[in-house]
Design a protein around this nucleic acid. Structure first.
Length: 202
DNA sequence: ATTAGGATCTTCT
DNA sequence: GAAGATCCTAATG
């Protein structure tokens, strides 16, 4: 029964299980500018080629190459011509399952995180939304494929404070039309950093 | 409070 | 040519 997100076994499990377990965990990026850490409060699971909402639905492309690789690596993709978003690859090699990191609270490196966002952004909004979360961590395409389990990696996970079942809310994934009936979005009930409160409530 | 539009990548039709 | 795992700003009620 893996409990630490810093192990390969943690990511070998089904992506919805990994997603739920990631709530409350801390993602940390280290760059020459410094360190930023975010405690996750909202994530979404995607399956591989079985999942019509997944980037891997139609099979491998150059972009999704990393999704088909080993678990515990980051799949970083460019969205809507503007934004970067981060997933963590799950299950065994070849399965293309992943968890999208959607929102969190900045718990370390607030000043650096703030410098990567619009001036005047409220604390709770710094990492609210997948592109915002990637932005405060300083991530872009050069991070695609990075191993978050490897010691000394620039992107790592910490145990954080796990979230009790009573505080976990599940629902349909945000912004997807195909596969919208699959309740694989997980977030912390009532947390102000959750990105889709206004749209879906809870 | 809600809505509409812009930015311009990757993939599919 | 269109849609998408988005976010921000400006224009409206």
């Amino acid at each position: 029964m893996p409990t630490s997100p810093a192990t390969r076994a943690f990511f070998r499990r089904p992506s919805p299980v990994v997603a739920r377990d990631l709530l409350g965990r801390v993602v940390m990026s280290t760059t020459p500018e410094g360190l930023v850490a975010v405690r996750l409060v909202e994530v979404e699971a995607y399956a591989g080629e079985d999942d019509p909402a997944s980037h891997a639905w139609r099979g491998p492309t150059p972009r999704t190459r990393v999704m088909y690789g080993r678990p515990g690596h980051a799949y970083v993709y460019f969205s809507y011509g503007m934004h970067w978003c981060v997933n963590l690859v799950c299950e065994q090699e070849g399965r293309a399952a992943a968890v999208l990191l959607r929102a969190g609270e900045v718990v370390a490196g607030e000043e650096l995180a703030r410098s990567r966002r619009r001036p005047g952004t409220a604390h709770a909004r710094l990492a609210s939304g997948p592109a915002n979360l990637a932005a405060v961590l300083g991530l872009d395409g050069s991070w695609d494929g990075i191993d978050v389990v490897a010691r000394g990696s620039g992107l790592r996970l910490r145990p954080g404070v796990p979230v009790a079942d009573a505080d976990v809310v599940t629902g349909p994934r945000v912004g997807v039309s195909r596969g919208a009936d699959t309740p694989w979005r997980f977030h912390v009930a009532g947390n102000p950093c959750v990105s889709a409160h206004r749209r879906t409530g809870g």
